[in-house]
Design a protein around this nucleic acid. Structure first.
Length: 441
RNA sequence: CGGGAAGUAGCUCAGCCUGGUAGAGCACUACGUUCGGGACGUAGGGGCCGGAGGUUCGAAUCCUCUCUUCCCGACCA
């Protein structure tokens, strides 16, 4: 992408409404603009990141055996009356009336919709288990939206729902998601710790929140230091195996959010106990037949008997993750994107637009990177050097290539790694190898 | 939902107390000098001072109502 053509409105100053760092940086880096309280427009650079995060989530869901669907944002009140939640959900649910005075709502979650589909379409035990997910906008009319996209009213969420014949199957489905979540966060460069959680309005008796530690987190958390050392499951994870031992590794040690924290039950030695703040980036639930029972989701078993399905639901706040990752990875100059979700992997700075040699070389590098499949943001603006460097740091591109007359005299260009600021020079002749290395990573 | 604050140029803000031609910096446009980590000069463009009522000869400024946004707390992917 050429910077001169890109819509990337960066700001030198911080808009007054932003108080936490991720919100400030998202506004400054031209990722989002606020439209109303807790409601945002995603600009090109923000959308690229959002889509990359969604794609990682998608890949890990698919790998764990879930299948993608797309459910409506607007749902019928009738469906929610079926589960009894239309009245229970309270003011957080945005209720809408259409021209025929039919009651609708903007979905805050989708248990009812998906359970209704499964109730209608799945009638035999042979068709189970099933795990269906979608990545869709949700709306919860928060009393007090804040922190930018971290607590918006409208937010993008991956939510999925598992359907099993019995509790054993449901727990296996739960464990799959437990491990898939660990992998998902790890791929984004995040260390997320599962913590025993309250089940809230979703209900159920088995639940974990996935918490990223960050100073600006909304809740206090307590956990065993050893959890920070645990590695997420690798590519060799086989979801069909017994997953319980792996899950137990994570759940055996103490970890709780403040609402669940009980100092009497906390057996962690003081010097092993981490007390910190955390951002909730995912929440999983097993809740049995809470929805399948009232909504009539059942199948016929091998013996002809009717079996009510065992369910779980699982959520990842995709748009919240954008903020959470920035909270976890930034410095005074701007965002530091992990390579897996960076909007562009390489930033190419032409220090002297209009200089024949610089222009020619930049065009060549730009073409070569594109040809190699490396995503590149080419700053071809006729601006001063300082502004380009500052912008590139602010936007957080992992690798920056700087082409200027000074280096070019010696046939060299500068490479800077955003993460640690380390700079080095490479010969123009060696660029092909460097590009190949980037393409391979 | 309780408590507090703020709405003036795209952004950051001054002006308001004490009513009298709407300002600065950044950003933007043009020209010139500059040019390796957010330059400088000159000349420009850009405002229903959130909205509606009121007081007054006259309101960004005073009064009333209203809308919006933000912050602190109680609640939540």
């Amino acid at each position: 992408m050429r910077r001169t053509r890109l819509f990337l409105p960066t700001l030198k100053e911080t808009p007054a409404e932003a108080t936490i760092v991720s919100h400030r940086l998202m506004l400054r880096a031209g990722m989002v603009r606020q439209s109303a309280a807790g409601i945002y427009t995603w600009l090109p650079m923000g959308l690229r990141v959002l889509q990359k995060i969604a794609q990682i989530v998608r890949e890990e869901q698919d790998r764990a055996g879930a299948q993608e669907v797309l459910m409506p944002t607007i749902q019928s009140a009738e469906l929610w009356r079926g589960s009894g939640r239309y009245e229970d959900y309270g003011k957080e649910m945005l209720r809408i009336t259409d021209r025929h005075d039919r009651e609708l709502l903007y979905g805050p979650t989708a248990e009812e919709v998906i359970t209704d589909i499964v109730a209608n379409e799945i009638t035999s035990y042979r068709d189970l288990p099933k795990n269906l997910y979608n990545i869709q906008w949700k709306f919860r009319d928060e009393v007090r939206p804040r922190f930018g996209v971290m607590r918006g009213r409208e937010f993008l969420m991956k939510d999925n729902y598992s359907f099993d014949l019995d509790k054993e199957g449901a727990v296996h489905s739960y464990n799959k998601m437990f491990l898939a979540y660990l992998r998902t966060y790890a791929r984004m460069g995040l260390k997320a710790i599962p913590m025993a959680a309250d089940t809230g309005p979703i209900g159920g008796d088995l639940s974990h929140e996935f918490i990223v530690l960050a100073e600006t987190g909304e809740s206090a958390v307590f956990c065993d230091k050893a959890l920070l050392e645990l590695e997420a499951p690798g590519d060799d994870l086989d979801y069909e195996n017994d997953l319980q031992p792996l899950v137990d590794q994570w759940t055996a040690r103490y970890a709780a959010t403040d609402e669940m924290h009980d100092p009497d039950k906390c057996d962690v030695a003081d010097d092993q106990l981490v007390t910190a703040r955390g951002i909730e980036v995912g929440h999983i639930f097993y809740f049995g037949t809470k929805y399948s029972e009232p909504l009539g989701a059942k199948v016929q078993g091998p013996d002809g008997q009717s079996i009510t399905l065992e369910m779980g639901s699982y959520g990842i706040g995709v748009s919240r993750l954008v903020g959470a990752i920035i909270e976890a990875s930034h410095d005074d100059n701007g965002i530091i994107w992990p390579e897996s979700i960076a909007p562009w992997n390489v930033g190419l700075i032409n220090l002297k637009v209009g200089d024949g040699d610089c222009d020619t070389l930049c065009e060549r590098i730009y073409a070569d990177l594109n040809a190699a499949g490396v995503e590149v943001l080419y700053d071809d603006r006729d601006e001063r050097a300082g502004g380009k460097f500052a912008d590139m740091d602010l936007v957080g591109i992992p690798w920056q290539l700087t082409v200027g007359p000074r280096g070019l005299k010696d046939g060299k260009i500068e490479v800077k790694r955003r993460a640690d600021g380390e700079k080095s020079e490479i010969a123009v002749d060696a660029l092909g190898d460097w590009i190949a290395a980037r393409a391979a990573s």
